[in-house]
Design a protein around this nucleic acid. Sequence first.
DNA 1: CCACTCATGTAAAAAGTTACATGATTCG
DNA 2: CGAATCATGTAACTTTTTACATGAGTGG
Lengths: 203, 203
Amino acid sequence: MARQNKSQYALLGMLTLGAMSGYDIKKLFDNSLRNFWGESFGQIYPILRRLVHEGLATVQKQPENIRTARKVYAITPAGRAALRAWLQEPVEAPTFRLELLLKLFFGPEMPVETSRRHVQRYRDEAARTLEVYEALEARLRGERPGHAGLAYWLMTLDYGRTYASGVVDWCERTLRRLDAQAGAGVLAEADAPSGAPSGSGRS
Amino acid sequence: MARQNKSQYALLGMLTLGAMSGYDIKKLFDNSLRNFWGESFGQIYPILRRLVHEGLATVQKQPENIRTARKVYAITPAGRAALRAWLQEPVEAPTFRLELLLKLFFGPEMPVETSRRHVQRYRDEAARTLEVYEALEARLRGERPGHAGLAYWLMTLDYGRTYASGVVDWCERTLRRLDAQAGAGVLAEADAPSGAPSGSGRS
DNA sequence: CCACTCATGTAAAAAGTTACATGATTCG
DNA sequence: CGAATCATGTAACTTTTTACATGAGTGG
């Protein structure tokens, strides 16, 4: 029970990398973790406020006084303890929602060419992501040599690379399969407008 | 704008496989699509009601009269048209939230052994999933030979297999890296209880 | 001066899960 | 007859996104 809020731990974790503002945290998510985690401002600011309220973080206005000033947050020992307690807990199994696969699963409802287009685009995106990872890895190794976290960051990056490269392979295999599908004379039927398919009876 | 609700299309898609009840739909998600899509009853029943209201599906009570009777839903031509329109639309890029990677990213905050345990468990689960897929593929090929959807179902299954097998590989590589990490003298510090770590100063 | 990035925040809506309530049927 | 499965549904809650509002500073 008490469905734990993972976002708060994500934020606490970010603060272990150094004191920073909500804006900085957002940038970090977008630049470094976007392949496996993200948070929106609508989550970040309210949670930061709560963390301070609960004594897990502290704030300090940078220019002081000004209403829209930059606020720098830092993790407290209590915050670090809370984070560590969560890090100890077993990882919950992720639930995926892959729209591409959902659509592909209903392939008989569309022309093969449409499935093909979706898969092709997915492939291109994964290939681009792969390039971004190469660049990111080079940057990481260069910028922060010897940083305690480096080895771990590279592990998560390796995950992204493995994943993206697996996607590219699968897409290429699937494109070939779709071509075979199109060649097998399914095209004519798939192009049909909306009639009911042959076998709809329940067992 | 008008953030489209994907769940409704998932349900409509299920109904293209044949008329069925909300309970049947749930079972189908749990048995066949669980690696890339899922829906809870809290979503399914209200959405089915709405689909009927909008003319995208029809209902029929099976024993009739009884209040808790089985209700069988069928897709209408309008429903099929709505589904197909959605199938045509470009696939939105998925956002992942992989708790394992988030925790691993904060590796310096925990003993190497904890990271190791998480990764090990992840590996075991992926390996088990892989076995389930093999069985599922055999069952599919046997049960429904010649079904129009079979080729597509096998493609989604192939995705799951590729993914799970990539995860297993990554986990094994990562376990070796973690061992190297532990050997590099990080263990002593990492095993410490919870006080502030050596270099906690903000830049 | 205009566009862009920096920077904080709120409100409303959407999406989704969980827990609960109810009751029939089937199998051992 | 008790447990499991079949079967439907609602209400409360949590989580998350989106859109909006505001305003300072910087570079062309």
